[in-house]
Design a protein around this nucleic acid. Structure first.
Lengths: 217, 217
DNA sequence: GTTTACAAACCGACCGTTCGGTATGTCAAG
DNA sequence: CTTGACATACCGAACGGTCGGTTTGTAAAC
């Protein structure tokens, strides 16, 4: 665990999944792999780079993971699952006013993004674009993660509809897909333009859309 | 130009940029590179695969392109630019009712997508997710392409506002970003789930949003 | 005779992976 | 309290293969 010169140490993406630097060998490898994959994509991620920045040897890596693909699976099953939970599921778990919760979450997330965070974009979306079409084992795991996000959204929106905080003109499923897709698109737009302003403007559009979903407006 | 066994010959993505199979060597290389990059991403795209499927030799490839990066630049400057023009700019060029034009375009595009098209996703979005954070030369070109799309949208929306077909409650720029981001997100969602139904449902959400942008509704 | 358009052989670097070996720990038998 | 058997956690040199790229050769076009 020496240097991650190229990976932003204070990355909002990083902070979301783990506060403490990893101690045991396996976690060191996973964390280094997460950074390397986020920077270069999975296929271009180098085992050598991973072990260099993790400060472990190749033998150690292949002791814990039988192949590069297995590292990818572990990233999805452990790190990315945790990432979705902490950045999204928890935000919506206990509210019956999901619109307010989402708007607040968008504002908060946007405000604490650095230029580097924006340039790197969402690690999960990047992973999905790259690996979903290539390998069904990856695709199934990625789909599962998005399903998790989708379900959290739908449940919260249904609670909101029940509580009279969300319009019933549109189904919760439809709103959830729209919100999810648009969030993904906003991050992608900001990433390609490397512009925080772009993220905020896209976010404003999404917030405007969300506000229109309140009943009797 | 032997086989593209793994690339769908009747791909909607392919048809959009060129009707005729390429004849001269340079175009053969570019077309093969487009397929290879769309399938595997740019970094994982193999020069060997490109020359194999293009039916040319390595000497021919490096006669026309000084490096792999130059092939990527050529793809963006020529193929992808043409792709944006034919799939998007032309759709909006001469209309002052952009909402109807977009809705029709979405319905038409969605209906002619195969399962393979969906699994592969938008080639430009994939390229952008992968290369924008890594290399500024790529990022600038990618940003330029999205700007082209954005400008086409903004111009059409402003004409629509002038003609009274689009609400003036929201700026054309804001609508354009929202539409662009959501389209991107819809394609990404459908890609990761490999589901045509997902694409149609996301598209329905976007269409609903668009219809709400008509004045006095 | 020079230039253009390839063709084919070849290069070192790096890839993911393997494998023989070691250091340390555990735990039960003697 | 020691000893032998086995397990876990590594170590790092080496492997076959592929990578992007180069060099040299050739034959037609101008």
């Amino acid at each position: 665990m020496e240097q991650f010169a190229k990976y932003p140490q204070q990355s909002a993406w990083w902070q979301s999944w783990h506060k403490d630097p990893p101690e045991n060998t396996r976690d060191k490898i996973l964390y280094a792999a997460f950074c390397e994959v986020h920077l270069n994509g999975f296929q271009a991620a180098s085992i050598q780079n991973i072990i260099n920045s993790a400060g472990v040897t190749k033998g150690a890596l292949y002791h814990y993971f039988s192949s590069k693909d297995e590292i990818g699976y572990a990233l999805l099953d452990e790190i990315f699952t945790q990432y979705i939970d902490s950045t999204f599921v928890e935000v919506l778990r206990d509210t019956d006013d999901p619109i307010s919760a989402l708007v607040e979450h968008l504002n908060q997330t946007g405000s604490q993004m650095s230029e580097e965070d924006i340039a790197l974009g969402c690690p999960l979306d990047h992973f999905s674009q790259e690996m979903a079409p290539i390998d069904t084992a990856f695709q199934k795991r990625l789909d599962q993660l998005y399903q998790k996000k989708h379900t959290a959204l739908v449940d919260a929106l249904k609670r909101g509809q029940k509580a009279g905080n969300v319009t019933r003109d549109v189904t919760a499923e439809s709103i959830a897909m729209m919100v999810h897709a648009t969030m993904q698109g906003c991050m992608a737009m900001a990433k390609s333009s490397r512009s925080l302003e772009m993220l905020m403007q896209c976010g404003a559009g999404l917030i405007h859309y969300l506000e229109q979903l309140r009943p009797s407006s």
